[in-house]
């Protein structure tokens, strides 16, 4: 598997990371190094190995259906670049 510059540009855009044109080639090289490193795993037959979901043998923890949190709207918007009337205020996004 090998990534070209166009694919790197697309991934960067999907992740909303601004990558200047001249850096795309370099980044493609780095990503391809990582991919080929990981590709070594394909040499091992993992057909009968279940995916590892946790390093410790444990089950998903569950919570009771009780309201135990919330009720601090000022804290929620405190770090927002802009807030108004208790809402986050962001540049207009409208269809």
């Amino acid at each position: 598997m090998s990534l070209d510059k166009a694919t790197v540009a697309k991934i960067a855009h999907l992740a909303r990371i601004k990558v200047p044109e001249e850096e795309l080639g370099h980044l493609a090289g780095e990503l391809n190094n990582i991919l080929s490193f990981v590709e070594q795993l394909n040499e091992v037959d993992t057909g009968n190995v279940p995916p590892m979901t946790s390093v410790a043998a444990q089950k998903l923890r569950r919570r009771q259906d009780q309201v135990t949190d919330g009720g601090y709207p000022q804290d929620i918007v405190r770090n927002a670049p802009e807030a108004a009337e208790g809402y986050f205020a962001v540049p207009k996004v409208v269809e």
Binding site: A84, Y87, F88, A89, V93
Partner: peptide, 14 residues
Amino acid sequence: SLHDQHPSKTYIDL
């Protein structure tokens, strides 16, 4: 998202 509360902003309620 509330688009009609401000001329240039969208308000977000989580």
